[in-house]
């Protein structure tokens, strides 16, 4: 058990060190990390120590420290990402299950072709079309922004939905509905790619599982296909694909950052783009570090999570 956790943490730490090194090298060439621009173990170590103490450099534009600024914009991006993933699971697993159950061939084909179409739509274009039609023409959703700024309530976590949930009773309902209506289109647009991926992976994985002998055995015991899907199908089909889906997190995060410009979403992406326009290298360095760190962390975390819930992977834990 400890051996397993250690191994995974090792992986996490080594990758983080490499990422930090890249940021460090970038910083040294741009004279971001102080006067000593030599690249050696001591300056590298100093750099790490500074990062750990929360000193991520100072913005050359505003002259303010980077770290608090970044912490202020990160939740907006992450919230969008998580929401998109949640939607992709809620939509993808049932659709993938239907397609993977095989019996209805036309059903499978329909789902798969819709998936293919969705997968090949340019996300940027979809975002613009939805904003133009649903927001500008129909006026159903707000065009941009993250929440109604006129509502006044505290934002302790920075995650809009959580803050709205705990808002004072008089503004709570209005806050929640405003947050959701602002999030709706960005979330839907972002969810497209991971949803197609979830559908595809669930279909393949479940298709394999449903051909296994234990499923046939269950059929001869007189269980219905749906009971078997719940009992044996998903239990064996979902866990093995979780690490693959964890990998997707990185690309969704990137897409989010790009789309933030379209939706004028106050997240890391918009913040970084501004930094690039203004040649604020310290901010670029900090943003890159934070994003890569989050991606690495989610990947390792999904891996550990899978191991914990999936007996066939849990073997690994017992053996050491």
């Amino acid at each position: 058990m400890t051996r397993y956790i250690m191994r995974r943490l090792n992986l996490l730490i080594i990758t983080l060190l490499i990422i930090v090194f890249i940021a460090f090298a970038f910083g040294q060439t741009q004279h971001l990390n102080g006067v000593d621009t030599s690249m050696n173990l001591r300056t590298y170590w100093d750099f790490i120590a500074r990062l750990l103490s929360g000193d991520w450099g100072t913005s050359s534009v505003s002259g303010k420290p980077i770290y608090p600024e970044m912490i202020a914009v990160l939740p907006a991006t992450l919230e969008l990402c998580f929401a998109a993933f949640l939607v992709s699971f809620i939509v993808g697993i049932p659709l993938g299950s239907i397609a993977g159950m095989h019996k209805k061939q036309w059903m499978r084909n329909t789902i798969m072709s819709i998936t293919l179409v969705a997968h090949s739509i340019p996300i940027f274009w979809l975002a613009l079309v939805l904003v133009m039609s649903l927001s500008l023409q129909m006026g159903w959703f707000p065009v941009s922004g993250r929440m109604d700024l006129l509502l006044d309530y505290p934002h302790p976590t920075g995650f809009a939905l959580i803050d709205a949930w705990f808002a004072p009773a008089d503004v709570r309902d209005a806050a929640i509905s405003s947050v959701i209506s602002h999030m709706a289109i960005p979330t839907l647009v972002l969810a497209v790619v991971p949803t197609t991926e979830v559908i595809r992976q669930v279909t393949i994985s479940l298709g394999n599982v449903m051909q296994q002998n234990y499923v046939k055995t269950a059929l001869t015991k007189g269980f219905s296909r749906w009971k078997i899907l719940i009992d044996h199908g998903l239990r064996n089909a979902i866990p093995p694909i979780l690490p693959n889906l964890g990998w997707q997190f990185g690309s969704v995060l990137t897409t989010t950052m790009i789309l933030e410009v379209v939706f004028d979403w106050p997240g890391v992406g918009r913040w970084l783009i501004n930094a690039i326009y203004q040649q604020d290298y310290a901010a670029i360095q900090g943003g890159m570090l934070a994003i890569s760190g989050i991606v690495i962390f989610t990947t390792v975390a999904t891996d550990i999570f899978t191991t914990l819930i999936y007996p066939l992977h849990r073997k690994e834990i017992y053996e050491h």
Binding site: M1, L308, P311, R314, I317, Y318, E319
Partner: peptide, 10 residues
């Protein structure tokens, strides 16, 4: 071999 016993025990 180590076989499982409970959730994480062996």
């Amino acid at each position: 071999y180590y076989s499982h016993s409970g959730w994480l025990g062996r």
